[in-house]
Amino acid sequence: MSESIDDERQRIRERKKQELRERLENGESLDAADAGEGVDTPDEPIAITGQGHLDEVVEEYDVVLVDCYADWCGPCQMLEPTIEALAAETDAAVAKVDVDAHQRIAQQLGARGVPTLVLYADGQPVERMVGAQDRGTLEGLIAQHA
């Protein structure tokens, strides 16, 4: 199974390289891409529907903040406005994993408590935090890996 995931990742990378080559050949500016804005990120959190969906999101965007949450979790509810603001105002894509609906994904992400936040950069997990985090800390981590 990991070979097929690796194959898919390689196909996505090759597609992105080809798109950049075509933009250069057409004389389009790559200033946005050079500033870390090559692929527009959604302005709202992405609700993850399964492992394949999470893999696609992590591969599509350079920086992805994954929020493992539960509807019944007080700290998760307190963190929600920050998560929405980060999606709207940073260059990171923000993905949300409901740990009750997707227990296996949460387990693979190392979520032993909620909220658990996992930051991906270039397809790899680079930070994992448990508990509610303040906006400044999260913005700093995103900027550091953008």
Rank of each mutant, 00 (worst) to 15 (best):
D31M: 10
N26W: 03
G113Q: 11
P115F: 07
G123D: 01
K17M: 10
I5Y: 12
A121L: 07
R112W: 08
A32C: 03
P81Q: 14
E89M: 13
E3I: 12
E22G: 06
Q107W: 01
A47I: 12
E44T: 13
P75T: 13
C73R: 02
D62S: 15
V58E: 06
G113W: 05
G123H: 04
D67T: 09
P42R: 03
L138R: 00
V39W: 03
V66G: 02
R11Q: 09
I83R: 01
E44R: 14
Y69R: 05
L20Q: 05
R21D: 08
I83Q: 06
K16Y: 03
Q77D: 04
R21A: 04
R128Q: 14
M1W: 12
A101V: 01
D122L: 02
E127R: 11
R15P: 00
Q18Y: 06
T82E: 03
V58I: 15
A143H: 07
E44G: 00
R104F: 10
A106N: 01
A47W: 03
R15T: 08
E80Y: 12
D98K: 01
R21F: 11
G136M: 04
L117Y: 07
G110T: 08
V97D: 00
V118T: 11
W72G: 09
A35P: 04
E80N: 12
Q144E: 15
T82Q: 09
D98M: 04
Q10R: 15
A85G: 06
E127F: 02
L30R: 04
E59I: 00
V126I: 13
G38T: 04
L109M: 08
E127K: 06
V114L: 08
P75G: 09
G131Y: 05
D31A: 15
K17D: 08
I48G: 01
Y120A: 06
D62C: 05
E89Y: 13
I142S: 02
A92H: 07
V94D: 05
S2I: 11
L141M: 14
P125Q: 08
R15G: 04
L119Q: 02
E89D: 15
T90Y: 08
G136V: 01
A106V: 00
V64D: 00
P115A: 08
D43L: 07
G110S: 11
V58G: 02
Y120F: 15
K16S: 04
A146T: 14
R9L: 12
A70V: 12
G131W: 04
G50W: 08
A121C: 10
A70D: 06
A92D: 09
E127Y: 01
A35D: 15
I12C: 01
P45I: 03
G136D: 14
I48L: 07
C68Y: 04
L79Y: 11
D71R: 11
Q133G: 02
G110L: 10
G123Y: 02
A33Q: 10
D7I: 05
A33T: 03
E22T: 13
D34Y: 12
E80L: 14
P81C: 13
E89Q: 15
T41C: 10
A87Q: 07
E80R: 15
L30V: 09
A70R: 09
A121F: 02
P75L: 07
C73K: 01
A70G: 12
E59D: 14
G50H: 06
D67E: 12
